[in-house]
Design a protein around this nucleic acid. Structure first.
Lengths: 221, 221
DNA sequence: CCTTCTTCTTAATTTTTTGTTAAGAGTCGT
DNA sequence: ACGACTCTTAACAAAAAATTAAGAAGAAGG
C-alpha cells in the first residue's frame, strides 16, 4: 500500500518513513505543500492515503487540503498536528480531513488509524471509534452511548478519544496532557483528573479506570 | 446519466469530471461558451443537465443561458459561481437557471443537487429544500415556515441555504463565510454571528444550533 | 443624480459556557 | 494508622457566543 507523507520536519519524516516501511507501507515523502500538490496531481490514484502535517512551508497543509477537496478529490487524509488543540484540528476536519492525530503519537496508533481510514475509504463511511456501548465520531466530534447522544466539551472529547485509541492500555497523566494539549508544557495541574471526573459523570462509572500511581485506562468492553 | 460541464478552469474541470465519473455520471466537458452551445445544439436531448460556470470565455455563461431559454430549451441548468453573492447568482437564476452552487463546494453537495434537479426535471416541479417545517425555494429565494412566508434578506437566505445543504452537519464560520461570500477573504468578523442571530429571530429559537468552538448546524428535523 | 430606505457590517457589551486551579475529603496499599 | 495518590467540589478565569446599536454600503425610486 502506497502512502504520501507530507512533513517538513526532517527527523520526524525520516522516522515515519522508516517506521511505516517496516509496517509494510510504501511511503513517498515530500517536504512541502507544492511537492505534495504535484505528487497528488500526477498520481492521486496511486496513493491509498495522505498523511498531512499542518504547517508545511510554501503551501500550508490546510490550503492544500481545501484545494484537494474543492476539486473533488476523495483520497483519505489523516492530519498530523503539533499545535494547540481546537483551532487547528477543527479547521482541518472542516476542510475535509478524515481524522487527526496529535503529536506525539506512537507508530502503532498511526498504523491503526491508517488501516481504519483505508478500510473505510472503500465503503465511504465516516470513521468511527467504538468500544463497547460507546461510539465516537471524530469528524463530527460526537459521542454516543447506547444510542443516546452524550454532550462532551472539546477537552472531554479529546481526552476520551485519546483513551480509546488504545483501549485497555494505561495512559499516564503526562501522556494524556500531551494528547489533549499538544506537546507537554510541564505544568503540574490536576486538570486531567477533573476532566476524567466529568467524563465519568457523563458516561457513568466503570468506563474509565484509574491505575494507581500510573494513570488511566478504559475498561474492557 | 450524461452531463454537460462547461468550465474553463482546467484544474477544476478535470477534478469535477473525475469526481462525477466516480459517482457514475458520464461527463462531457467543454471549456468555452461556443463549445457548450454547439454541444447543446447537436445533442441537447442527450444531456440530463448542464453544469454551467458563469464567466466562461468567448460566450459568457449568462449569455449562453439566456439564449438557451429564449429558444425554449428545458434542460436543467445548475450554475457554478465563484463570484460575490448577489449580482451573479440572482442574474443567473433570473436568466433561467434552476439552482446555483457557490465555489468552493464539495462533491457530495454537487451530486445531491444534480440528482434533485434531474429528478425534478421529469415532473417540472421547481427545486425545493425542506427540513422539518421549513421550506426553501432557491430559485425564487423564498422561505416558508409552517406555510407562512418568512422574509429573508439575501445574506440570510444564503446562510440558511448553506446550513440546510447538509442538515445536521456542523459548519464552521469560515466555511459559512466561504459559502455566503465566495472564496474566503480571511477577514475576522462576526457577520455570520449576526446573521445567525437575525435568522433565529425570524425562524424562532431551536432551529439553528451552535456547537461551541466548531460552528453552527441546523437541528434535527 | 440625488434622496431615502433597506440591508450589511462592525464593534462594544453582556451573557453563557467551558476550562483551570486549589483545597479538602476520601481511598488504597502497606 | 500513615502517607501517597485520587476524587470531588466550588470558586475563579478564560473563551466563545449572543445581543445591541450605530454607521456604511447598497438598492430603489424619484
Amino acid at each position: 500500500m502506497r502512502l504520501l507523507l507530507a512533513e517538513d520536519d526532517w527527523m520526524i519524516g525520516q522516522a515515519l518513513r522508516e517506521g511505516l516501511n517496516q509496517e509494510g507501507f510504501v511511503v513517498d515523502w515530500v517536504q512541502d505543500g507544492h511537492q505534495a500538490e504535484l505528487a497528488l496531481k500526477v498520481a492521486e490514484a496511486d496513493y491509498a492515503l495522505l498523511l498531512l502535517d499542518l504547517g508545511l512551508p510554501r503551501l500550508s497543509g490546510l490550503d492544500l487540503l481545501t484545494d484537494l477537496r474543492r476539486r473533488g478529490a476523495g483520497i483519505p487524509v489523516l492530519i498530523l498536528t503539533a499545535r494547540d488543540s481546537l483551532s487547528d484540528r477543527v479547521l482541518g476536519l472542516n476542510s475535509g480531513a478524515d481524522d487527526y492525530l496529535v503529536k506525539p503519537f506512537e507508530l502503532d496508533e498511526l498504523v491503526a488509524r491508517i488501516h481504519a481510514l483505508v478500510r473505510r475509504a472503500a465503503g465511504r463511511a465516516e470513521p468511527v471509534v467504538e468500544h463497547g456501548p460507546l461510539r465516537l465520531l471524530p469528524v463530527k466530534r460526537e459521542c454516543w452511548l447506547r444510542g443516546e447522544p452524550v454532550e462532551l466539551s472539546a477537552r472531554e472529547f479529546d481526552l476520551l478519544y485519546a483513551l480509546l485509541e488504545k483501549p485497555g492500555a494505561v495512559l499516564s497523566r503526562t501522556r494524556l496532557e500531551e494528547r489533549v494539549y499538544g506537546w507537554g508544557q510541564e505544568v503540574v495541574s490536576n486538570a486531567i483528573d477533573v476532566h476524567i471526573h466529568h467524563l465519568r459523570k457523563k458516561l457513568g462509572p466503570g468506563f474509565i479506570v484509574n491505575v494507581r500511581g500510573v494513570g488511566y485506562r478504559v475498561a474492557q468492553a
